[in-house]
Each structure stands twice: as structure tokens, then as C-alpha cells.
Write a protein that binds this DNA or RNA. Structure first.
Length: 112
DNA sequence: GACCTGACGCCCC
DNA sequence: AGGGGCGCCAGGT
């Protein structure tokens, strides 16, 4: 694919939602997939894997799996980048898991 | 054009 | 309660 011509694909919708995640909050692949009603959580994760293709910065570090684990941390430039990015926003990480994930969890439907 | 893979999640044993 | 398997959809090879 030629990135010079940004192809409007499935992940564009995912980016839009991810960009709406408030700073200091986190969301899950399943929640996003459920809100978009497109594909499945797996698609969201796969889409975020291509987030580097987006011109805009996508706060992929705010997206975790349903357990609140930083499942995609290994996909970042450095394995600790995701954790540090979250901690920079005031989110505590313990053993690759978001502390108080239940409280920090943000559902896209919340912005409606 | 067919098969495989993937930052997940839920149902079934 | 824990572990394993199938489903999801699109892109890449």
C-alpha cells in the first residue's frame, strides 16, 4: 500500500474513536468494536497495529484488552513506552496491568 | 485467487 | 474456576 495516498480503510473509524479517549482514561478493544459495531475486537487491535500509518498521532497506549492488560506494549518502539505514556497521564501500571482499570475504563458510548 | 495471520473476546468443556 | 477452542474481518503473501 502506498501511504502517500491514505486509503480509507476500516481502521480509520477506529482511530477516530481512539482519538476521542480522554487523557488519563483507557478503553478496550471490545468496547470500541462494540461501539463501532464493525467486525470484532480483533479488528481493532489489528487496526491499531497500523496506527503508525496514520498522519495523526493515535493514543494507542490508552487502548488495552478487556483485562486492562497492556497486551500491545511489545508493538511499541520500546516495550516500556506504552506503560510510561500511561503513567505520564496519571495512570498507574502494575505488572503490565492498569491499576484501577475499572474506574479508568472509558466507553465510547459515554461521549454521546 | 486461496490460505494464513493478527495489539481480542466469548462460549464450551 | 481454569483451560482450550472457535469466531471475527481485512490485509499480506
Amino acid at each position: 500500500m502506498d501511504k502517500t495516498f491514505q486509503k480509507k480503510s476500516y481502521w480509520t473509524a477506529v482511530y477516530e474513536v481512539v482519538l476521542c479517549i480522554p487523557e488519563g482514561r483507557v478503553s478496550t478493544y471490545g468496547a470500541i468494536a462494540d461501539y463501532l459495531a464493525l467486525g470484532s475486537a480483533r479488528m481493532v487491535g489489528w487496526a491499531l497495529n497500523h496506527c503508525h500509518s496514520s498522519e495523526e498521532f493515535v493514543p494507542a497506549h490508552r487502548v488495552v484488552n478487556r483485562k486492562g492488560e497492556l497486551s500491545g506494549r511489545l508493538q511499541f518502539p520500546t516495550p516500556t513506552a506504552m506503560q510510561e505514556a500511561l503513567e505520564a497521564e496519571g495512570i498507574s501500571i502494575k505488572k503490565d496491568r492498569v491499576v484501577d482499570f475499572d474506574k479508568l475504563f472509558w466507553h465510547p458510548q459515554e461521549m454521546d
